[in-house]
Design a protein around this nucleic acid. Structure first.
Length: 351
DNA sequence: AAACTACTCAACCGCCTATTC
DNA sequence: TGAATAGGCGGTTGAGTAGTT
């Protein structure tokens, strides 16, 4: 049995709100409040609108002190750092930015910020991929780019790419940084794990994994306190008070090293330092946000580049149920992890 | 000037969670 | 305790607009 609709859709007006409707809603709420019942509200004031629609209109547009557009660099950085930490929890992110609505932030991220971050990188990845393809003069492993883009939509690929790249680098607890969370026989994971551990005999697990696994079990017993002042955290309202960050509320490269650099393998450390510096510059820049494009173009974090030519990878995604519909579910796996981990983290460190 | 493309953002949809009965 | 309901949220859509050819 399906759910009953929240309103009679046949008798409900849709589309843009008229000034008269806005005035009615605003006047009523100013005088009486919402009355705790959005569903009943439109009937009370004679609006042929769904209660949910009224609520959305009020929250996103009519509510006092709403700011539209004109995002500052500070806000950009807060959005970026929180997105990296917790994913697309727009309401939580909006809570850190007074006057901003989750819808506004979501739109801003999807239309501008994400492009700023990914645009150049994608270009460079694409050109590099084409170059490789030309060099080998064949479609690697028999999978053409067209085929792979059919199997995995561009938007889903972008989201995963960005989320895993950024979250993996910033967050030691992330899915990307924690092979224990990877599905078994994930060829990409195996490959990455291998690359990071060429000296497998001397390293049982990545330092990140060791730290994060242990932290997840008993956070209070782990010496990861240097992260605390800098990790963006929705439970931590003091993100504006970060004296160590190079930019407001944003971790500095040294902090990334503190997070993940506890490794006796010098080559791994050197590579990690490069990636961390590069990402920090990508987001913050030395000449303001999102600077140093030429260095962005030289960086290769695009783990999914390999999937263009990896049939097994595509099979894995296919058999894991990764399709257009379920992509959000798969995508959310990593970010859904974050609140719990952050909560544990917060409990362990009195955040 | 017209046609086309890309972009923005308000609004909707459907799912999930919390609350009430 | 479970069903019904409302609130809340994130993903997506589509109309309007700006930019380009």
């Amino acid at each position: 049995m399906g759910r009953a609709p929240c309103c009679d859709k046949a008798n409900v007006k849709k589309g843009p709100w008229s000034p008269e409707e806005d005035a009615k809603l605003k006047t009523y709420i100013d005088e009486h409040g919402t009355g705790g019942n959005w569903i009943a509200l439109p009937q009370k004031i004679g609006l042929k609108r769904c209660g949910k629609s009224c609520r959305l209109r009020w929250l996103n547009y009519l509510r006092p002190n709403i700011k539209h557009g004109g995002f500052s660099e500070e806000e950009d950085q807060i959005i970026c750092s929180l997105y990296i930490s917790i994913g697309s929890r727009w309401s939580i992110i909006a809570a850190q930015l007074p006057g901003r609505t989750d819808n506004d932030i979501k739109n801003y991220w999807n239309t501008r910020l994400k492009k700023k971050l990914l645009g150049k990188r994608r270009d460079s990845s694409e050109s590099r991929r084409l170059s490789i393809s030309q060099d080998t003069n064949e479609e690697t492993n028999g999978i053409s780019p067209e085929t792979s883009s059919q199997a995995l939509s561009t938007s889903a690929l972008e989201r995963m790419q960005l989320h895993m790249q950024l979250q993996g680098l910033y967050n030691p607890f992330s899915f990307y940084n924690n092979p224990a969370l990877w599905p078994k026989l994930h060829p990409l994971g195996d490959k990455l794990f291998h690359i990071q551990h060429t000296d497998a005999s001397s390293i049982a697990a990545t330092p990140v994994q060791q730290e994060s696994d242990a932290t997840m079990i008993e956070p209070s017993h782990q010496n990861v306190s240097p992260i605390k002042p800098n990790m963006p955290n929705p439970m931590n309202a003091n993100i504006h008070e970060d004296p160590n960050s190079s930019t407001l509320g944003f971790p500095s490269p040294s902090i990334f090293r503190t997070i993940s650099m506890d490794n006796s393998n010098p080559s791994f450390n050197a590579a990690a330092v490069g990636l961390q510096d590069e990402l920090h510059d990508l987001l913050c820049g030395k000449n303001g946000c999102f600077g140093r494009q030429e260095e962005q173009q030289q960086t290769e974090l695009d783990c999914f580049r390999d999937m263009n030519g990896d049939k097994e990878s595509m099979n894995w995604w296919a058999t894991s149920g990764f399709d257009e519909k379920s992509s959000s579910v798969s995508w959310d796996f990593a970010s859904n992890l974050q609140p719990d981990l952050l909560q544990e983290y917060g409990l362990g460190y009195d955040l």
